[in-house]
């Protein structure tokens, strides 16, 4: 039985870009990178293969979405992502339910990081189920060219110096507020080009 239309088209009628060439091994490789990224926050973890991504997603963002999201994970897209071919692509390849409400999203994808909603608008999880919080996938310009920050916490031996470029000015003060919710709080995976960088809620950041 076919549950999806056989020829995937975006809203403007153009044929959609393909998903993973090998859904099993591509997803495994990208997940391993994500696992390492979350386990060792602050390290840029390159993917070992590149993917054809729909606008405005980068290769890493697209791969991460295909790897983690599906019909069970209501997701919020920022305006730039929702308006591109990415929206139809995500709906088709992930069966992703797209929602407008940030506060119930399991995932949030932001490609226009400067116009991101404040972090407290996303789902912080529940005190008895802190795992239900939103995971934000934020696509940034660079991991090295932005303002210097110092990260400490689980997964970091001593401290790490990170310079993410392309975040709104309030981001790190919002991150402090997020830390105060612990064990609740959102988690972030930054993407840049074809690399990932994890920022789980446990990480303290000095801007």
């Amino acid at each position: 039985m076919t549950l999806q239309s056989p020829t995937p088209m975006s809203s403007d009628g153009a044929a959609l870009k393909p998903g993973f060439a090998d859904p099993v091994f591509d997803a495994q490789a990208v997940f391993r990178a994500a696992l390492v990224a979350i386990a060792y926050p602050g390290r840029a973890i390159p993917l070992d293969r590149t993917f054809a991504a729909p606008r405005p997603l980068s290769s890493a963002t697209a791969a991460l979405c295909l790897t983690l999201m599906d019909f069970e994970t209501p997701a919020w897209l920022d305006r730039q992502t929702a308006s591109g071919e990415a929206s139809a692509w995500l709906r088709f390849h992930c069966g992703l339910p797209l929602i407008d409400d940030t506060s119930t999203a399991r995932f949030a994808v932001g490609t226009d990081a400067l116009n991101l909603p404040h972090l407290l608008e996303f789902h912080p999880g529940e005190i008895e189920y802190p795992d239900r919080s939103t995971t934000l996938v934020i696509q940034v310009k660079s991991f090295t060219d932005g303002p210097v920050t110092t990260w400490t916490g689980p997964g970091i031996k001593g401290s790490a110096t990170i310079a993410i470029d392309g975040l709104p000015f309030w981001f790190w003060s919002d991150w402090d507020l997020n830390s105060e919710l612990y064990p609740r709080g959102v988690d972030v995976i930054f993407t840049c080009g074809n690399a990932l960088m994890g920022l789980p809620r446990t990480i303290k950041v000095e801007a």
Partner: peptide, 30 residues
């Protein structure tokens, strides 16, 4: 049988749980 026995949807669900588990060290993710 799929690679590693589990179907891809099940793997995704477990992978999501693993990432949340690492984000809240020691907390048991259902």
């Amino acid at each position: 049988y799929n690679f590693a026995y589990l179907d891809e949807q099940t793997k995704r669900m477990i992978r999501r749980s693993l990432l949340k588990a690492l984000s809240i060290p020691g907390y048991q993710v259902p």
